[in-house]
Design a binder for these strands. Sequence first.
DNA 1: TCAAAATGTAATATATATGTTGCAAAAAGT
DNA 2: ACTTTTTGCAACATATATATTACATTTTGA
Lengths: 68, 68
Amino acid sequence: MKNMKLKLARVEKDLSQEDLAKIVGVSRQTIGLIESGKYNPSLSLCINICIALSRTLNDLFWDAEINN
Amino acid sequence: MKNMKLKLARVEKDLSQEDLAKIVGVSRQTIGLIESGKYNPSLSLCINICIALSRTLNDLFWDAEINN
DNA sequence: TCAAAATGTAATATATATGTTGCAAAAAGT
DNA sequence: ACTTTTTGCAACATATATATTACATTTTGA
């Protein structure tokens, strides 16, 4: 399933996928695939994305409705 | 760095590494390596561990002091 | 409209998470 | 002390996250 929270947080910061990719040190494709829900990213990448977007893991990668 | 929060949450539930591994569907070694900080687990595995231990991603895998 | 930027997608290559097996060491229970 | 359970660790195999390159499509701005 797509990660809309990530996409929204990125757009709120006015960053393109490529901008965010450079900040966190991965390729643009990796960001795109995470947003479209086709990748299962590593924890450290999730954390780096959260820091770049000033969010927490729960904000971007935890779905309370699904998980509880 | 070791993940003490994970280890404590597991012990609080009275689960061995092997117990938790079976619940989340990975090997015992994988759980041990995550607890000892030698692995960078996938997001989906982190989520499965959280569900098994009744915690959230922030509870077990987010360090506010380091990340903020 | 047109051009530029942003995003989607695909093929191939590489790094690393994870599995499997086995054995040693440590911890816990009796 | 002894046994059992738990944990650590190592070597090798496999699956998959991620990189790279390239091109197509969509979106945005002038």
